[in-house]
Design a protein around this nucleic acid. Structure first.
Length: 458
RNA sequence: GUGGAUUUAGCUCAGCUGGCUAGAGCACGAGGUUGUGGUCCUCGGGGUCGCGGGUUCGAAUCCCGUAAUCCACCCCA
């Protein structure tokens, strides 16, 4: 009977060494930048009670979950996002947690959707949440963290743009101009799509949502202020002139905060940023790549009712999520992903001695860290050391292998020198080499590494 | 859930309208060189031609089904 062949399940990825290194690179930057901004890492279960996801989501979204029933008939689902877990965790411990709560997580998430560019069924999603501060200060902080991370990846104003809006202010503006309060949901539905549709498609959308002539006229004006044409700026100015003064000054105030934080070049007020679902209550934002070809790199905003929805106290919150799939595509397209992210060995031990013991001993010594006498700190770090698993003693062949491994140094153990109690340390970048006593090998290797090539391959 | 394209060696692909044991380049391994490198030369391992049916004397090639991938629609937390 022939063995069956297997493929990874639809929409999942295997992480071979190269792609695993890319994933680690991305996660390391997310983690490093989060910590730098004073956030601490959390995580939760990869699956939760189905009911947790029913709290704030519609049927459409629940139908996109990986759903299963355990042997005790409990309904469970793989997490499609981290926010419900986070809200549950905060709600449970809210009384005892120091505030504000600044948490981040890098969970693996699952959605049973049709895979396409930038969207898979299993992905990593960086989640950042700032809970317990109702002011725009936390909005600004969260936005700042997002920008800082994108810059850490090497992205610039040429590569991405952040559009921001404010649900509350936008509602006021719309209601004060033309939208009837009971039509606000429809208005957001339309606003969310205006920027992506042609005039004909917009017209069809208006019909579908039962817009009268007056509404159509207003929405067309909104559409002009969204599309990134020459008229967008003036159109937005004209539009805003009809908004309440309080709304305009609030927008100006936040614009000032963005400017104060040095983010003015990255962010712009954009009435087209609505962020789909209803739970956002104030500030919202979305990171788009400049080409406009990809889906959003990240998105988030304020959801002050969130913790209450999951049974906790009333706690204001703001946060965002960034997935690894779109980010990696953008980094690749922009040439911002280093070609080879695998760790580069410090030393390749070339053993041309018949007796394997000296080389084995050297490898062990180089890999071992040396600790202070009290064992409390590392005096000398252990090195990343590799060697050949081939039987040949041909130094040329072994050096070729050392070069292929992109090691920074080679240490050559060969009969002639070894008889004299020395070995050779070779710098694989400039090809220089020198003899050192075997007894000082470890110290000399550390010294040589200071002048050796870079630690990353690039 | 819907539509289009695709699937041949580890990778990138050839294989015309069906015809002898299925090919190339790169990569990998061994040797040429029992002491100094990414070049070169020789040799070598590797493929149920996505999978399952069907048509045919004969299928990688034609037909049907199915899975996956890519792209788009729906949706997008």
């Amino acid at each position: 009977m022939a063995a069956p062949t297997f493929q990874p399940p639809k929409g999942t990825r295997d992480f071979y060494p190269d792609s695993m290194a890319v994933r680690r690179y991305i996660e390391d930057i997310w983690r490093r930048v989060s910590i730098r901004h004073g956030f601490v890492e959390v995580d939760g279960p990869t699956f939760e009670s189905m009911d947790l996801y029913r709290v704030k989501s519609g049927e459409e979204i629940v139908s996109q979950l990986f759903y299963f029933v355990d042997r005790a008939a409990r309904e469970l689902a793989l997490r499609p996002e981290f926010t419900p877990t986070l809200a549950r965790m905060v709600a449970e411990k809210a009384q005892g947690l120091p505030r504000p709560i600044k948490w981040f997580a890098i969970p693996r998430c699952y959605r049973a959707e049709q895979p396409q560019k930038g969207r898979l069924r299993e992905f990593m999603q960086w989640n950042v949440d700032f809970i317990g501060d109702a002011t725009s200060r936390s909005d600004q902080e969260v936005l700042m963290l997002c920008v800082d991370a994108l810059r850490e990846f090497g992205l610039t104003t040429k590569d991405f743009r952040i559009g921001w809006n404010h649900r509350e202010l936008m509602t006021q503006a719309l209601v004060n101009t033309f939208v009837k309060p009971d039509r606000i949901g429809d208005a957001y539905f339309i606003l969310d799509r205006l920027g992506k549709l042609s005039a004909a498609a917009r017209s069809e959308l208006y019909t579908q949502r039962n817009c009268d002539e007056e509404e159509r006229g207003h929405f067309e004006m909104l559409a002009d202020a969204i599309s990134q044409t020459a008229v967008a700026g003036p159109a937005l100015d004209t539009l805003m002139a009809s908004w309440p003064a309080a709304v305009r000054s609030s927008i100006a105030a936040f614009e000032q905060k963005i400017s104060d934080a040095g983010m003015a070049d990255y962010c712009r007020f954009d009435i087209g940023v609505v962020r789909g679902l209803a739970y956002y209550t104030g500030f919202v934002f979305e990171v788009m790549d400049s080409s406009g070809e990809n889906r959003a790199i990240a998105g988030g905003g304020r959801y002050d009712r969130l913790i209450e929805m999951f049974g906790g106290p009333a706690l204001p919150a703001v946060g965002f999520g960034m997935g690894d799939v779109v980010l990696e595509i953008v980094l690749r397209e922009r040439g911002k992903l280093p070609a080879n992210l695998l760790p580069r060995p410090d030393v390749f031990v070339v053993n041309a001695l018949e007796n394997g013991q000296p080389a084995a001993r050297l490898v062990t010594d180089l890999r071992a860290s040396r600790w202070s006498a009290d064992g409390q700190r590392i005096v000398r770090p252990g090195l990343h050391v590799v060697e050949s698993y081939r039987s040949t003693k041909n130094i040329g062949k072994l050096l070729q292998e050392a070069a292929t491994s992109e090691s920074r140094l080679a240490v050559i153990l060969a009969e002639q020198e070894y008889q004299r109690g020395v070995l050779k340390i070779k710098n694989l970048c400039d090809r220089s080499e020198r003899e050192v006593p075997v007894s000082q090998a470890v110290e000399q290797v550390h010294a040589a590494l200071k002048q050796a090539g870079p630690e990353i391959r690039g």
